[in-house]
Design a protein around this nucleic acid. Structure first.
Length: 431
RNA sequence: GUGGGCGUAGCUCAGACUGGUUAGAGCCCUGGAAUGUGGCUCCAGAGGUCGGGGGUUCGAAUCCCCUCGCUCACCCCA
């Protein structure tokens, strides 16, 4: 017996690493946040799209980029029964573009504005603000190269943050150019670094061949020193990219939105072109990005469509919640129960249950205790769960075909006829 | 993948450095305080083989080794 218990304790299964339960005390927060996201994005003309939680692996390999960290070491990939490779989505943009093409949305209208909310999966080592399953909301505007849209995406995100009450967010912005000018810049960068390679850290030496732009992001002191004097991409943008970046900045200025140009901002997804930005918070620890995005003018074509410019943004909801908690921002709490039904003795439980159901049918929330607890205990429960009223059913009341209704706040209570109960409640006993 | 920190009651932790009688506190939980009423207070009670395994020792929560888990950082990102 004791041995069994011991063994069963060992067999407790825990949540997988990097995942978490959202408990009832927190679900209202999620409702609240998701509602605000939907409300504001709808206002901006975005429509919600829901894509599957997994896709064929190839979508992400082609979309995000073969050599990216996400694809090389962070994906949950598994074969289906026929051996086709599937992957839990690590991000939302590639699936949305896939759905856009698959459902011929390119034919139905000029510009398609979509948003999504849902879980993403990355098999990384968890730490502060980083999980293996996390939720993102994201927006995608497909079908226009106008820089106005880059800005709209940013301000839509900012409005959501603002509505939630998040403070002290910073916007970092950069342009990573297009295919052509980026290639030229990368060449310049490599030339600059070539004779300084020996002073770089071992990882950056690797990056030199694979993805030289990442060297800009290295935080090691030595690399920083070298990078400091390196050419910056914004000096090598082609005419079109330069003009685009200029317009984006000028719209931001017009709207009096504060931002920092960060020429070394390079994001880890290969599809970005031109505008690339990040929204960061000091309250997040090392993982300070609360959201990020940019333009991806080549992705639609990359995934088999016609050349179609697009821009998007994605934000981590868990990180938003972390910042909300840090900044002690409140959110609507669970609504208490309208009525708790308390029975004086077990003999009354059938009547109590019938009345309980009657109240529920009238559209009010109601509950009772199903074990044989004392009236005192039942009152305690009613108090603890925040019931507005407690309905007490005892022999005295039953003999008169009445119940006692107690207002938990004012502590006033009165007897009410059962036949008149719903009327009484609707009439305003509940305010 | 590489490093640091931490695992003692449901929760927050003390005890560990300087091994030694039944391992503690607060909160929470359960029951009770003139018989049918919440909070506070008071009383009583439940709850841990100290993450797991091995070793040293007369004796281990405490020292050593292994292992698992959590956490933070690097990396990368939301």
């Amino acid at each position: 017996m004791l041995k069994k218990e011991k063994e069963s304790k060992k067999l407790f299964i825990k949540v997988p690493k990097g995942t978490q339960d959202i408990l009832p005390e927190d679900t209202p927060k999620w409702y609240y946040i998701k509602n605000i996201i939907r409300e504001i994005l709808t206002k901006y003309g975005y429509q919600e799209i829901r894509t599957p939680s997994f896709e064929y692996t190839e979508l992400f390999v082609r979309g995000i980029g073969e050599s990216t960290d996400i694809v090389t070491k962070e994906m949950f990939t598994f074969p289906d029964r026929k051996g086709r490779s599937l992957t839990l989505r690590p991000e939302g943009t590639a699936p949305v573009v896939r759905a856009y093409l698959e459902n011929k949305m390119d034919r139905s209208s000029q510009v398609v504005k979509l948003f999504y909310i849902g879980p993403m999966f990355r098999c990384e080592k968890p730490q502060a603000g980083r999980f293996r399953q996390f939720n993102q909301f994201g927006i995608e505007v497909i079908g226009t190269k106008s820089p106005v849209v880059d800005v709209e995406v940013i301000i839509a995100a900012l409005e959501i943050y603002k509505k939630l009450g998040l403070k002290n967010l910073e916007i970092l912005i950069n342009s990573v150019g297009c295919k052509r000018c980026r290639a030229i810049y990368v060449q310049k960068l490599k030339e600059f670094i070539k004779d300084k390679k020996d002073f770089l850290c071992s990882e950056c030496v690797n990056r030199y061949e694979k993805n030289p732009l990442r060297i800009l992001d290295c935080k090691k002191d030595n690399c920083q020193k070298i990078i400091k004097t390196a050419p910056i991409i914004t000096d090598y943008l082609c005419q079109e990219c330069k003009q685009h970046f200029k317009e984006v900045k000028s719209y931001l200025n017009d709207l009096k939105i504060k931002y920092y140009v960060e020429p070394r901002l390079v994001r880890g997804l290969d599809y970005y072109t031109k505008t690339s930005f990040e929204i960061v918070s000091g309250e997040l620890g090392a993982q300070n990005a609360i959201g990020g995005g940019g333009r991806y003018d080549d992705l639609v074509e990359e995934l088999g469509g016609k050349p179609t410019p697009a821009v998007g943004f994605a934000a981590g909801i868990e990180r938003m919640i972390i910042v909300m908690n840090q900044q002690k921002i409140g959110w609507p709490k669970n609504k208490g129960l309208d009525i708790f039904v308390a029975k004086v003795s077990e003999r009354n439980k059938n009547i109590a249950f019938k009345l309980l159901q009657k109240i529920r049918n009238a559209g009010l929330s109601a509950d009772m205790d199903y074990s044989a607890k004392s009236l005192k205990s039942q009152m305690r429960i009613a108090h603890k769960i925040g019931a507005k009223y407690t309905m007490i059913i005892g022999e005295e009341e039953i003999s008169k075909n009445m119940v006692t209704l107690r207002n938990m706040k004012t502590k006033e209570q009165k007897e009410v006829e059962v036949d008149n109960l719903i009327n009484e409640l609707e009439k305003g006993s509940l305010g």
